[in-house]
Every structure is written in structure tokens, then in C-alpha cells.
């Protein structure tokens, strides 16, 4: 009776089978409209807090090691959230890693010089990919001062990676140790740094103030590498290219 809520099993292949009766759809619409009205009413009738945590953050900003308050929150005041977020990305990466079917001795990247990517692809590769990587590096660096940071940088570099590895010329070996190391280095460095600074300051993830900006940049760089690799893996796993290399080689 309840088993097929959210989606019907057949509808994954044949969406037309998942259509709800109009009466139920209208009922859902009315209920959700009522819910939203109630929520908006609650917003209007309730006074917003006067300043949130803005004052608290800005009063401590000079101790955080960075000038951008959002980066300070993400990588210093609430760095523990970011650590768990990197762990969430690792889960998805583990699921999408192809099953181990080939030997581990293969190198991380394989180049097929003979393959011809075509004019458009080769010029995109030549101009866009390096630009994306440099922009990624800039994003990472500028995160300390203005909007930017590990995720934005990782997304740009992953874009370059997608451009490179959807090309026939280059293939990435997702079963190599190096690839798994790239996926987990973000979490690894985050935990190790947290532990290392605790030896100095006594609290997990509490950076010595003098080195805070350097440690933040270090952790962010490792996180960028993992984020970029994970996003690349997500794309390749869902888009379904690279099957050949990883299953039959």
C-alpha cells in the first residue's frame, strides 16, 4: 500500500507509469500550498534576530588567520563542519570507484598519442584546460581575502579534468593507488592537521594563531585536490565514459 511512495519501480524506465491520479496531485498541491502559506505567515509574524553571529565573527576575525569572514567560518570557527562535509564527499567517491578488476600496477594517467581528438577538442584542451587550472589556483588563494575557496577551486579544476579525460587522448586509471590517494588526501590532511595542532594548542583543530593562515591554506589545498578528483570521478562515473580502460584493460 505504501511501498511505492516517492517513485514507482517501473517508472525508472518508463516515466509514464509513474503518473499520479489528478485528484491526488491536486490534493498534494493544495496541502503544499497550505504548508508554504503557513511558513510565510510564520516568517512575517516572527521578528528576525537583530544581527545573527555577524558581530561575534567580525570581533574574532583578526584571530582567524584570514580576512574573508566566510572562509574564517568555514575553515576556522566551524572547521569541524567542513571536515565532515569532506567526509560526505568521500562516501560518494567510494561508491563510484569502479570495482577492482585489473592489476594495481597501472599508472594514474595513460596517454594515447596516436588518437586524434579533433580540431575543436585539441584547441579547447590547449587553451581552456590550463586557464581553468590557473583560475582554480587563483580561487584557492583568493579565498583568504574575498569570495572563493576550496570548493570553487575544486569545481574549476574538475572542469579542466573533465575536459581532459573525456578526450580520447588521455585516460585516468581510477583503480590506481594514486587516484584513491587523491580522493582521500583532503580528509587525511584535515584530520592529521587537526591532530597536529592539538599537540601544540590542546584543542582539536585549534590552529596556533601565528600559523593559522598557512595551515588554512594547506588544508584548503588538500581539500581542493580531493574535491576536484571527486567531482571528476562523479562526472565520469555517471556519464559512463572510461568504461573501457577501467574494466577491460
Amino acid at each position: 500500500m505504501f511501498k511505492e511512495i516517492i517513485f514507482k519501480e517501473d517508472a525508472i524506465n518508463k516515466p509514464e507509469k509513474g503518473r499520479l491520479p489528478t485528484s491526488i496531485a491536486v490534493l498534494c498541491g493544495v496541502t503544499i500550498l497550505a504548508l508554504c502559506t503557513l511558513l510565510v505567515g510564520a516568517l512575517i509574524s516572527t521578528q528576525r534576530h537583530s544581527e545573527g553571529l555577524q558581530q561575534v565573527v567580525s570581533s574574532m576575525l583578526n584571530k582567524s588567520g584570514v580576512e574573508n569572514p566566510v572562509t574564517a567560518v568555514l575553515l576556522n570557527f566551524r572547521s569541524y563542519d567542513t571536515l565532515l562535509e569532506i567526509a560526505v564527499l568521500l562516501i560518494v567517491a567510494i561508491v563510484m570507484l569502479p570495482q577492482a578488476t585489473v592489476s594495481k600496477s597501472l599508472s594514474l594517467i595513460r596517454v594515447q598519442q596516436s588518437a586524434d581528438p579533433g580540431l575543436i577538442m585539441s584547441s579547447l584542451l590547449r587553451f581552456l584546460a590550463p586557464t581553468l587550472i590557473i583560475m582554480g589556483g587563483y580561487m584557492l588563494w583568493t579565498g583568504a581575502y574575498s569570495p572563493g575557496g576550496a570548493f570553487q577551486a575544486g569545481a574549476l579544476i574538475a572542469g579542466a579534468g573533465i575536459l581532459i579525460f573525456t578526450n580520447v587522448q588521455y585516460q585516468v586509471n581510477m583503480q590506481s593507488f594514486a587516484f584513491r590517494a587523491l580522493l582521500s588526501i583532503g580528509l587525511c590532511i584535515f584530520i592529521l592537521s587537526g591532530f597536529a595542532v592539538a599537540l601544540q594548542t590542546g584543542q582539536f583543530l585549534e590552529y596556533p594563531q601565528k600559523y593559522a593562515s598557512a595551515i588554512i591554506l594547506f588544508i584548503e589545498t588538500a581539500a581542493t585536490v580531493s574535491i576536484a578528483t571527486t567531482l571528476l570521478l562523479l562526472y565520469l562515473a555517471v556519464a559512463g565514459t572510461q568504461e573501457e580502460f577501467n574494466h577491460d584493460a
Binding site: 571536515l83 593507488f177 587537526g194 582539536f204
Partner: peptide
């Protein structure tokens, strides 16, 4: 002072398991 270990130790073991395979 050991409380974070209840969370960080499992995460560290997870990273080890990804790497060791």
C-alpha cells in the same frame, strides 16, 4: 579532551581502508 577521537578515529580508519584496499 578525548571526545573528538570518537569521531576522528572512525574517519581515520575509513581513510586507511580506502588506501589499503
Amino acid at each position: 579532551a578525548l571526545l573528538p577521537a570518537l569521531i576522528m578515529l572512525p574517519l581515520a580508519v575509513s581513510v586507511c581502508c580506502v588506501l589499503i584496499k
